[in-house]
Design a protein around this nucleic acid. Sequence first.
DNA 1: CCACTCCTGCGT
DNA 2: ACGCAGGAGTGG
Length: 274
Amino acid sequence: MPEGPEVETIRRTLENEVRGQIIESIWRSAFALRTPTDSETFRFLNGDRIQTLSRTGKILLIETEQARGIFVQFGMSGKLQWTASDTELEKHTHLRIKLRDCDQELRFVDPRRFGDVKPFQSAAVRNQLLAQIGPDGIQLSKEQMRETAKRIRKCNRPIKTILLDQAMISGVGNIYACEALHLAKISPESLGSSLALREIESILSACKQVMNAAVLNKGTTFRSYVDGNGEKGGNQNHLRVFAKEKEPCPVCGKTIIRIVQSGRSTFYCKKCQA
DNA sequence: CCACTCCTGCGT
DNA sequence: ACGCAGGAGTGG
């Protein structure tokens, strides 16, 4: 569910709460996530002090002062909860990080179980986990934009599909891919190889712009997204095309259409994005 | 390259 | 009952 801006909002809402806390113990449910782990897999983290929450694309890292930590991938329905330790467990709670001398704890809840949590025991392993992930779209530098544009131009896939490829540019999901292409006035069906470098750069710039605006609005709550404190975002009130099939384009008034690309819905305006 | 798969939950 | 959902890996 969460894309880059939602994960960034989660990171911001939780960082001040968990920084400096010491991990007392970690509990893992018996339900399989993407990577098979159990409570024992996380045991070496006991006693570690949490230093930071960091984010690359849609990945959140809980990092400790010992250069160890936990990799969190939210998938479609994952969320992190900062909650009183005696609160009843919500259904589909898969990880509890209990903290020393603290009456609150961190929980990972994920009904569909497309998400993942896995521990890393060194900076080397952490870097390896992040190695396949492309540059973060929220803070894309000019240099990264030019390099990424060149790589995209070599792809014979529709630009919408390319934007969802986390190895190309990270943090962009279905909502922001649709929104960015509308802002950049590019058809989601254009092939990467058919676009000019400057067009691709304008798309990447639009990705950065729509995602930064979304961070300011504390994320998009389309269905069930909430931040670490259970609060909804506000960016759903600023969407231009996403989930607006049959509604008028906010720019030209033509009816927004929905198509399917690689099994995912794409919403766009056929007039603005010719 | 796309289609399919992993899951649960919700709206029609 | 069915289709759809903010993701991502696999296999043909």
